[in-house]
Design a protein around this nucleic acid. Structure first.
Lengths: 347, 347
DNA sequence: TAGGTTAAGTGCACCGTTGCACCAGTAAAT
DNA sequence: ATTTACTGGTGCAACGGTGCACTTAACCTA
């Protein structure tokens, strides 16, 4: 199929396959400049490209990392995937993308398949409290970087976590609303029991407590059912949430959303009810996806520096894969509140 | 590293590696049921998973297809990637994702790397008029499905094109505006010379002509420079376009956007200028991404049935790869106009 | 001039699977 | 009793590249 092999190159250049291999694998000093030139010419003339499967079989190495995200249909993950690919490509790595739909069984299956593909490094965007389901492979030697999930008690030391500080992020969001005079503030998320949600919820209640409010009185909406929601539906979820909240007896004047897609859904739900976002009800998102700035009204949100975090995730993974560093350092990024038009003073 | 090989399974089951291989490769009739059972038990007990690199090296086959999109940061492509992965996974295929940023050189480089990875099937979302830069590999045996690009004169018969009918789509969009009484209608796109743009532009002018308007008088904005724009910036582009258009002497009362992200940018630009979308200026998008319905006002747009198209793309590719069908059939899907709130009567 | 060192390049076993070609044993057909 | 056919396996070379261990020849050095 592919055709050209190292033998053909060797023959064309009048050397042995070993010499070609030496040139290809960073041992060019082992031959005369003129030999080297002959080999290089043969390579380009024949359009030779090493067969990766053969190389991988022999060396056990492969320049591919896995990326497991909930769903690239969510622009947050799409953007992250693009940044990660960018970082990886710069070092000659490819990225194999998997959409877990936030299903631990799929996560596990994917990771096992990646393992048997020979992939030894994975960025897992899971946010599940326990990573037990993938630990067996980690103990077999899989390098794992958990993204969007902070370090948890019981995590093995080899696990690197890269995440924004969710508690602080949610505090920033909630405080901003409190400062605007809101007191009936709702927290809206899906029903998934993620580290993420727990931490953002804590930041939310912390801020209420600091302001002298009773977090027990906080309005919390977290999905109609116990079923996990894919990231695709998270916007629809927000829309539903608003319907429920407005039908209740304690209607919030402001809403903290688990993320921007949810916030956009919430905004749509508010408009569905004939109310105005930022005036009748304030909304804060989380992530600062590109669309946050494009929405109407533009979304106040908590920014995650995605490009930097993606670069860091890849570099941590690479260091582990090449053996440069056996144990990495988790990263907890301080988020930033971006105030736009979806929040306004309480009326 | 990975550990378990077919030899260990064979030894545990008391058979030869060939027998294990026979079982794994659909030749279970070649052994007694009890032998088969022993092998199966050994496999599950040892947690054996075939080494794909070895298998690929031996057979030349690999269950991975490539997907080249402009950028998964754009929700349209993210959603498409997710649908394609879904279809592929159902048949045991993985998807290797690449972001071309609409750069032909990157496209080419990616496709060559995929080829040397042993990948023989690629879904290319390119929309460039000429696919010359990848033709050498197609002639070497690469199966290519071009998505979001209609068949062009000069395309080889082996090339499958799957696309929505852009001319009809743009006609639907434009006619809708004409029916609302608009006459000063602008067409906004990036500067990329894509098949897409050309066809949508033609649908746009066709509709104007049909309505007795002079397409020469149409307002066309297609980027400030000749540089290609990545899909990331397409929204920002729309925003810029509005600034330019409103500064001109013929201000449009309605705008046909090249796609939804662009339309969302345009909507933001209209608001920047203190005008109201759907009342002062109407906007029509293209694609019907999830966010079109969430936007405020919700975006009138031309829907592409992405899930079906992704399934078709994969199935065409698979047929080519397995040799079921040597030559596929291109698909031209009829799009549908979804009227929402971003369009209203001309004032 | 023997002994040592270096430069330039080659030989070969091995990575894990696959599937064709082969084989031993039994049963039915001649 | 020999041939033929079938069943239930096994043996082995090959896929393409890698890199250690080795050779050969030239050049130093005491």
């Amino acid at each position: 199929m592919s055709g050209v092999t190292i033998y053909q190159v060797a023959e064309a250049a009048g050397v042995s396959p070993s010499t070609v291999s030496n040139l290809l694998n960073g041992r060019p000093g082992r031959m005369l400049p003129q030999t080297r030139k002959r080999v290089e010419e043969a390579i380009s003339q024949l359009g030779y490209r090493p067969n990766r499967a053969a190389r991988q079989l022999r060396t056990g190495r492969i320049q591919v990392i896995g990326l497991v995200v909930p769903s690239v249909a969510n622009p947050f993950w799409g953007t992250f995937a693009r940044h990660l690919e960018h970082a990886a490509l710069a070092e000659g790595y490819h990225v194999l993308l998997c959409n877990s739909e936030r299903d631990p069984a799929r996560e596990r299956r994917y990771i096992e398949e990646l393992w048997s593909d020979g992939i030894r490094g994975i960025v897992l965007c899971s946010s599940l409290p326990s990573l037990e389901h993938v630990m067996p492979l980690v103990h077999q030697g899989l390098s794992l970087v958990a993204f969007d999930r902070t370090a948890q008690a019981g995590d093995p030391p080899s696990l690197v976590n890269i995440s924004v500080d969710n508690v602080i992020g949610a505090q920033l969001a909630t405080r901003h609303l409190l400062e605007l005079g809101h007191e009936r503030i709702a927290f809206v998320s899906g029903s998934v029991r993620s580290v993420n949600r727990r931490e953002r919820y804590r930041g939310f209640t912390d801020a209420l407590t600091d302001a002298g409010l009773d977090p027990q009185q906080a309005i919390v909406w977290s999905g109609a059912s116990e079923e996990p929601y894919g990231d695709l539906d998270v916007a629809g979820l927000g829309r539903t949430a608003v319907r429920d909240l407005l039908a209740g007896d304690r209607r919030p004047t402001a809403i903290v959303a688990i993320n921007d897609m949810c916030a956009l859904g919430i905004s749509a739900g508010i408009r569905d009810a004939g109310l105005e976002v930022g005036r009748d009800i304030s909304v804060v998102g989380f992530d600062d996806i590109v669309l946050a700035d494009l929405a109407s009204p533009a979304l106040t949100t908590v920014r995650q520096p995605l490009a930097d975090m993606a670069a860091e995730a890849f570099s941590q993974l690479r260091e582990r894969l090449t053996g440069e560093a056996a144990v990495g350092h988790s990263m907890l990024v301080r988020p930033e509140l971006i105030v736009r038009a979806s929040t306004g003073p309480a009326r």
